[in-house]
Computed example of a mutant assay.
Amino acid sequence: MARFGRYTVELSNTDKVFFPDAGISKGDLIDYYSAVAEWLVPHAKDRPLTLHRFPDGIDQDGFYQQQRSDYFPDWIQSRKTARVEDSHEDEKAVDHVLCNNQATLVYLANQGVITLHGWLSRAPRLTRPDRLIFDLDPAHKDFGTVRRAARQVAALMQQLNLTPYAMTTGSRGLHVVAPLRRGQQFDAVRDLAQAMAQHLAQQHSDDLTVEQRKDKRQGRIYLDVMRNAYGQTAVLPYAVRAKPGAPVATPLDLDELDDSGLDPQGWHIKNILRRLGQKGDPWADIRRHAVSIEGVRKALDKMRD
């Protein structure tokens, strides 16, 4: 049993090995999420979650879960979401878990949740995103091309009066995110992201593309903005990935994109807390820099004329 304020979490099978290559147990995962909660929970707060669960560790089959389990304790908050943006019919609703405190994070880890993926909007205004995201994955093993693409995305964001925030995904690539005021619906944000991607692909045609078909990308980095839609998710900052070594999605200072040694899986549960103790969270002030997209769109249109 572990107590977190008013809440008690019953822990089980903490010796079970979850990451065999690194000898990381379920108990180690629980300890990590307990320790990182002060940095992770502010990014998760009020966001409906998709849970990536591996009850028997990453060498066994896992599954994604959106609907809150009936056996979850009553103190775990949740939010019903319509399956489509313009629907409010109860029979189409999914009851998503919200992770708004340390106890919930620990409880989910005890249930074998390794990775948390969050919506780009927060309750109660779920149709109004507060983040715009570019998802960049390498076309080949040269991660330098992804770092360069992230720099190009960030530079455009800055030119448009957006504030860019970069993060390794703990998998293969990088996310570049800009915080938004919650004034517009997803369609408007997605349209803006697509227009930004098209502009970047035109300006850097040797490096970047908006071509969805892999056989037409010719080694260029695909500017993926498809996550900017209602109900889509992105891995949360400081979430663990279900990969060997337990890598962690890690927020970066922008100048770290210039580091040739940057590795998308270089931060993991055995070293990320030391980094946080030394540097703090580079995304700690992200919400303070939210802007309205109306001015951004006008600036982009003017740039493209």
Rank of each mutant, 00 (worst) to 15 (best):
R53G: 03
H88Q: 12
Q60A: 04
R68A: 07
L116E: 06
E89F: 01
I58Q: 08
D61A: 13
G57N: 02
T50I: 15
Q111I: 02
E85L: 07
R122S: 08
N101I: 02
H96V: 05
P124R: 00
T81P: 03
R79S: 09
D137Y: 10
R53H: 02
N101K: 01
A109E: 01
L120C: 07
L132K: 10
V84T: 15
D86S: 09
L116P: 08
D61K: 14
L120I: 12
S121E: 04
A103W: 01
R79G: 00
H140R: 13
W75Q: 08
P129G: 10
W75N: 06
S78I: 03
P55N: 11
N110T: 01
L49S: 13
T50V: 15
V94K: 13
R68M: 08
A139P: 08
I58G: 06
D70L: 06
R128C: 06
I133T: 15
Q60G: 07
F72I: 09
Q65C: 04
R131A: 09
Q67F: 00
D95W: 07
C99L: 08
V84C: 07
D59C: 09
Y107P: 03
D59R: 12
Y71R: 11
I58L: 00
K80C: 09
W119G: 05
S87D: 14
A139W: 04
W75S: 03
P73C: 11
L120V: 10
D137C: 15
